[in-house]
Amino acid sequence: MLTFGNFGHVGYDPTFLPQYLTSRTTATIQVESMAYDVIDRIFFNFLIRGRGTLCWHVCRKNKDYVIKDAWTHESRVNHERDILTKIRGLKGVPQLISAWTVKIGGADDRTDTRRSSLSCSSDIRIHRRLLMQPVGIPLSDFSSIRELLSVLIDILDSK
């Protein structure tokens, strides 16, 4: 029966479509009403318990973006969004394009609705996506010592 189930009912995230279900050449991730083409997964970690943060390099209409997908604790749902909104325009930090609570079937994607039996009321997490620019590359990919130092100076010395 599972084989014939709806993509979402089987347990997949219907806002993240693998390539074989899209009409495009890549998988897509949804933020608000837009679908973004996945170029690469740029961050993930193996922790079983936690925010399950994933970062994706995505693209839409030839523009590159980063999507940070994380399960944020209920008490700090808008924390990072608020900080990024406050520092919008500052050089050398991510520029927030939009912040979205993942919605599945019209409802917010939360741990207490997905796993009501396992859910602990003090640890409810909300599935959030932040769309940001620009896309960075790891510091370890510096092309010269001069560049490495310059990047560090940028963080320590930027206008």
Binding site: T53, K91, V93, P94, S150
Partner: peptide, 15 residues
């Protein structure tokens, strides 16, 4: 010739 730096992840940031 040089690329610039980017400070990311404001999850732990305190306002």
């Amino acid at each position: 010739i040089l690329r610039s730096g980017l400070l990311i992840d404001f999850d732990y940031a305190a306002d």
